[in-house]
Design a protein around this nucleic acid. Structure first.
Lengths: 225, 225
DNA sequence: GTCTATAAATAGATAGAC
DNA sequence: GTCTATCTATTTATAGAC
């Protein structure tokens, strides 16, 4: 490697490090993280740009500098969120394992994203309630591809005579519904637990994931009607 | 029946009919109905009192006359909603049928309320996402009693050696999650259906209810690990 | 019970200096 | 890229006439 190239690379690295030292995470990333958390807790309408800027400890005008509008910032979060879920769901469908394991991997994929992006379950719930008013065409395609990935797994299982045919949307609801409910309701469950509901605060992540995996497989393997 | 009683009854009936003719449903009821629909579609923060008043075709000041504030109007809707669900869930648990039928009745109770109050699934989703910020103590008790009713059914089934012991919150999530998702996502499913997702617009109410009933019973009867 | 007018606070967004 | 100051529209809520 020529010393010129090395020098250029060193200079650019130094610049980046200096910038990071001055304002640790990039203001754009800080805004994305803060906005995701605030939108999850308060919804699009319930979250002001002032609140986002304060949570990110960034000047409000930076939202308009980076994203152009509050709505565009929100769309960016939706795109990232559903994009990541779609990638992981497609990966589960494409892996080289038996269909039963693909169903388990699909369930785990949703749970993984709920852990990686805690804003994802509440925001998904809100978007459902809102009838997808904020979703752009690309995001709708991503959501559709999650269901399509599940459909492909089911079809494969049916071809291999291990599953019986089922409406993929029905299976999807049986998986996504309980999982999102669990991940989005942490605080609510604790409140119910203090109110005397047995097992509300005790329910663990591995239990619900295993439960949803068993339920989905039991239905697909069709041991009852 | 004395003619005096008859006359009093006729006069009161006439008064009511005249009032109804002048302003068909009571302005209070119109506001409650309009607010429920708007809060479901837009959330608490996303719905203005102007929008509610316009939808109810009632003057905005009537909201403050009848309810005192936007928040109090919203709480009134939550109280009615969760009160009705709790009553119906407890009725399912208290009926004189075998535990299997009580589970089926519990599922049907949720579905019945989702039909009777279409604002109920989206608003429940929103309250979960919001971590129950708008819920007063009475409403939290009502929600808890829904889970408690389910717990009583499970315990009865366990005593009768027909169910195995299960965390009621887990069973609850498996029932409520898919049901709310189905009832809240009508428009979203149609959009996915147009986007090419198989069976998205085809899925019928009776299918999902029967599915959730079977799933809950399969888990409780414990034919697999 | 119903309505108009308006107060008071907060919202999203922009201009322009640095 | 960052910040201050500010414009404009909208928000919840109330006062007071009818």
């Amino acid at each position: 490697m020529s010393s010129l190239v090395l020098t250029i690379w060193l200079v650019s690295l130094t610049k980046r490090l200096v910038r990071r030292a001055a304002q640790p995470p990039d203001s754009r990333d800080r805004l994305l993280a803060a906005a995701a958390a605030r939108f999850a807790a308060g919804g699009f309408a319930g979250t002001s740009v002032d609140a986002i800027a304060a949570a990110a400890r960034v000047n409000k005008a930076m939202i308009y500098y980076h994203f152009g509008s509050k709505a565009a910032l929100y769309r960016e979060i939706l795109r990232d969120m559903f994009g990541a879920v779609a990638v992981r769901a497609r990966a589960a469908a494409a892996s080289a394992v038996p269909p039963e394991d693909k169903i388990r991997a699909f369930v785990e994929a949703i749970a993984f994203e709920a852990d990686a992006r805690p804003h994802f379950p509440p925001i998904w719930f809100r978007e459902i309630a809102e009838e997808g008013r904020h979703l752009d065409a690309a995001t709708v395609r991503n959501i559709a591809s999650v269901v399509t990935a599940l459909e492909a797994i089911i079809k494969e299982g049916v071809s291999a005579r291990r599953f019986r045919p089922m409406n993929p949307v029905l299976v999807h609801a049986g998986i996504i519904g309980p999982l999102l409910l669990y991940f989005a309701s942490g605080r609510m469950r604790q409140r119910l637990g203090r109110g005397g509901v047995t097992g509300a605060s005790r329910l663990r992540r591995e239990e619900i994931v295993a439960h949803v995996q068993r339920v989905a497989l039991a239905m697909l393997e069709g041991r009852q009607s």
